[in-house]
Simulated scan of single mutants.
Amino acid sequence: MSPDIPDEDPRSIVWFDIDNTLYSASTKISQAMGQRIHAYFVGLGLDKDKASELHHAYYTQYGLALRGLTRHHDIDPMDFDRKCDGTLPLDDLIKPDPRLRKLFQDLDRTQVRVWALTNAYKNHAQRVLKILDLEDQIEGLVYCDYQQIGFTCKPEPDYYHNAMKQANISDPSKCYFVDDSRLNVTSAKELGWGHCVHFYEVGLETVEGGKTKKLVRDTNTNDLEGIAQISDLEELRTLWPEIFI
């Protein structure tokens, strides 16, 4: 081992997605974000229909609308961040949840480290964690670095490989992961992440790529992929009893 590379921590890692996972989709944050992204497209001189079409197309093709914007339009990604994520009234939409904080406090830190894994930029991620009173419970944060040319995002394999590299963990089977995107969870599972859970709030609405999506019953629940589905993070205590105090 090179002297400038720390020894690998023997503990497993619990990776938590942030948006629509640490808080409910009922907050309508995804809707508010979708409106801002649509306005950003229109601000480029596109009519509303073309803006909607490109918003959805870029989200579908690249995982994030911003990635399409940086590839096909002359935009500053940090300007996008300021005008979209940066203007969300998060303090009005989400509040600390003592029950959620207790869940984090009950994770056995002798067994696991706790990291956040998000497709947002660090500013947004840090704002959410601060409002939720979880800053001191998160040991590390992996985010989409908008300032990096060709940045990756979930569900791309490179994003997960980079996350493991940042956290200095080499064994994917020691990764616990919960996310509200089935695609993100499936991608992690295919890479060998050992304990993957899909957080899914049936009956609520969210926005993906500018399109409203109603969360209906997922027929893939607990299927052959070995991915459990939950609607309340408290269920993690039952699914992962070995890492809770």
Rank of each mutant, 00 (worst) to 15 (best):
A116E: 05
D218T: 00
S52A: 15
G68L: 02
G194C: 12
E242I: 05
L69C: 10
G34K: 11
V185Q: 06
Q229K: 10
L46S: 03
C84K: 04
D47I: 02
L141R: 07
D180W: 02
F177R: 03
S2N: 15
E205P: 03
Y200C: 07
G63S: 11
P172M: 06
K165F: 13
L191S: 06
A163D: 05
H72P: 07
R237G: 03
D97S: 10
S30A: 12
H56Q: 11
Q229C: 13
M33S: 05
R182V: 09
E208Y: 14
L100I: 04
L233A: 03
E235V: 02
A25F: 00
N222H: 14
E234C: 07
Q166K: 13
A188M: 08
Q148V: 13
D92F: 08
G150N: 02
K154H: 10
L134D: 03
N222A: 14
H198N: 15
I29Q: 01
Y23H: 00
L224P: 01
Q137R: 02
Q61S: 13
Y176N: 05
L191N: 06
N20T: 08
I227E: 00
H195D: 06
D79W: 08
V207S: 13
Q148I: 11
E205D: 14
Q147P: 01
L141Q: 10
H38F: 10
F151L: 08
T21M: 05
